[in-house]
Amino acid sequence: MMQLALSKWKALDKWKDSIGYQSGLLATICGLAALLLMTMELWTRPLINLRIEEDQNALLDEVLNGASYANKVFSQSQKITLQQRQYEIFTVKDGAGGTTHYVVRGSEEGFSGSISFLVGVDTDGVITGVRIINHTETPGLGDKIELAKSPWVKEFNQHSLANTPLWGVKKDGGSFDQFTGATITPRAVVNGVHIAMQALANNLAGAGHDAP
């Protein structure tokens, strides 16, 4: 009896050593890992989207420079693509339903990843504020694009396509400062905001409005 049991264990061990068993075990583990990742992604996606929405709403007053609004600004958007970049344009309205500002959301590749930002623009095409939503730039260098780390982002205030012929950092002959030891990050933000302003102008012109 014991010999029969030992024989079965040996057969089982031999089967476990087979390529088929190992391949099946590996496939099962990979499948479970993929299922776990998918479940985590589905679970965290709404939380991430909610956090982004909260961050945007918190920054809205800042990019509008304190101007009041009566609508849910981020509830509707128009998407426009320019220079292989996609921007979302939101309309800001007052209590009477009139348009007072536009907000453009976009992103640009920085030194170490994508930099997402909001641009507030009045109906004359003048920037009222720019704020960074999120980024992965180098702490102590590139993170100076955050208002909490540096006032640099306020340099965009009062700029427009009409009054700023050279959009770039001063190192490139433009109007905006760069950071000591970190030129790529501010250069990326300036470029992204510039194209965002062009996308807004194109969108308004296409809708029959006077381009700001």
Results as ranks from 00 to 15, higher is better:
V119G: 09
N203L: 08
A182C: 13
R45I: 01
N163P: 13
V63F: 04
I127T: 14
K8Y: 15
Y21N: 00
P139R: 06
R45F: 04
K8R: 15
V92F: 09
I19A: 00
R45H: 07
S18T: 00
S175E: 15
A199R: 01
A211H: 04
V190D: 00
L35F: 06
S150C: 14
P186M: 06
G110D: 11
G142L: 02
L64V: 06
A148C: 03
I145N: 09
G95R: 11
K14I: 02
T39C: 10
R51M: 13
G125L: 03
R105P: 06
A96C: 00
A67E: 09
V169Q: 12
A211C: 05
T39N: 07
L166N: 13
K144G: 11
S116W: 09
K171H: 14
D122G: 10
N191T: 12
A211Y: 05
Q78D: 07
F156P: 02
R45V: 01
E137Q: 08
E54D: 15
S114H: 10
A58L: 08
S175N: 15
W43V: 02
G129L: 03
V190L: 01
A96I: 01
L141K: 11
T81E: 12
A96V: 02
G129A: 01
K170M: 11
Q83N: 14
V190W: 01
D13L: 15
I29S: 06
S7Y: 08
D210K: 11
D143H: 06
L59H: 07
T164A: 02
A70Q: 12
A201S: 12
I19L: 01
K170L: 08
K144I: 02
Q84N: 13
E88A: 15
V130W: 12
F176L: 04
T100D: 01
D94P: 00
S107M: 11
L36N: 02
T185S: 06
H194F: 13
H101W: 05
T180K: 11
K144T: 02
G31M: 06
G192I: 04
K72Y: 11
I48D: 04
E62K: 10
H209D: 06
L82F: 08
Q56K: 15
L147P: 00
S112D: 14
N65C: 01
A148R: 13
S77K: 08
T100I: 03
A188R: 08
A33S: 09
I184N: 01
